[in-house]
Computed example of a mutant assay.
Amino acid sequence: MTAALRLVDERGLEHVTVEDISEAADVSPRTFFNYFAGKDDALLGGPVPDGPSIHERLLAVPAEVPLVHALFEAITPDVAGIQAERDIWLLRLRVIKNNSSLLPALVARGECSEEETVAAVAARTGKAADDMFPQLVATTAGAALRTAMMRWATHDDRDLLELVREAFDILAAGLTEPTEEKAPR
């Protein structure tokens, strides 16, 4: 909810109430609670959008596509949606950065998303969800996405999809050390 993000960006999280947000959005507090569990939920993005899940999208990618590239294809609609709402997402990321009390809710959301990715990778690869491989793939894919988003939000003028593609290409290459610019040890 943009009104919540703007108010918290201006005043700080502790100086904004649900009533303030409701007034700025021109809705009643009751209506606010029809859509959000609370202030944190409004700031972090609210309910998950309709449409195919990461699980469905990953399983729809042809089996001959290597796993990391298939994961990139599966998350591309989400990344495109974030890019399309660039101003709101940059505001959201700034609010999160400046209000560390939002981190537990953000971590919980990330964990749910990661569990869904683990299940999708397990289904695609035939591994058990409690096997290390799907868990490690989901964790590293999440880290690649977060890294690309933080670069996009802070100091990289490139398109988010380009940054995510680069991060996933690095993963697909097996995190091998770049040869053209070796850093000194």
Score class of each variant (00 low, 15 high):
D26N: 14
P29I: 10
R30D: 05
R30L: 03
F32M: 02
F32Q: 01
F32E: 02
N34M: 14
Y35V: 02
G38Q: 06
G38T: 07
G38S: 12
D40Y: 14
D41Y: 02
A42L: 11
L44R: 02
G46Q: 11
G46S: 12
P47F: 00
P49E: 12
D50R: 11
D50H: 07
P52H: 09
S53P: 03
I54W: 07
H55V: 06
E56Q: 15
R57M: 08
R57W: 04
R57S: 07
L59A: 09
L59E: 08
A60H: 04
P62S: 14
E64R: 09
V65N: 03
P66H: 03
L67M: 13
V68Y: 09
F72I: 00
E73W: 07
I75Y: 07
V79E: 05
V79M: 04
A80M: 09
A80W: 03
G81E: 02
Q83W: 05
Q83C: 04
Q83A: 15
Q83I: 04
A84M: 08
E85W: 02
I88C: 03
W89Y: 15
L90Y: 08
L91Q: 11
R92M: 11
R94H: 10
R94N: 09
R94I: 06
V95K: 00
V95E: 01
I96E: 03
I96M: 13
K97I: 00
N99A: 06
S100K: 07
S100I: 00
S101C: 02
S101F: 02
S101E: 07
L103F: 15
P104C: 13
P104L: 12
A105F: 02
V107K: 14
A108G: 09
R109V: 00
R109I: 02
E111C: 08
S113Q: 06
E114A: 12
E116W: 04
E116V: 01
E116N: 11
V118Q: 10
V121R: 04
R124V: 15
K127E: 13
A128N: 12
A128L: 14
D130Y: 10
D130G: 14
M132C: 06
M132Y: 13
Q135N: 13
L136G: 10
L136S: 15
L136N: 09
A138M: 03
T140V: 05
A141F: 04
A141D: 00
G142C: 11
A143Q: 08
A144V: 03
L145V: 12
L145A: 14
L145Y: 12
R146D: 13
A148M: 11
M149D: 02
M149F: 07
M150A: 12
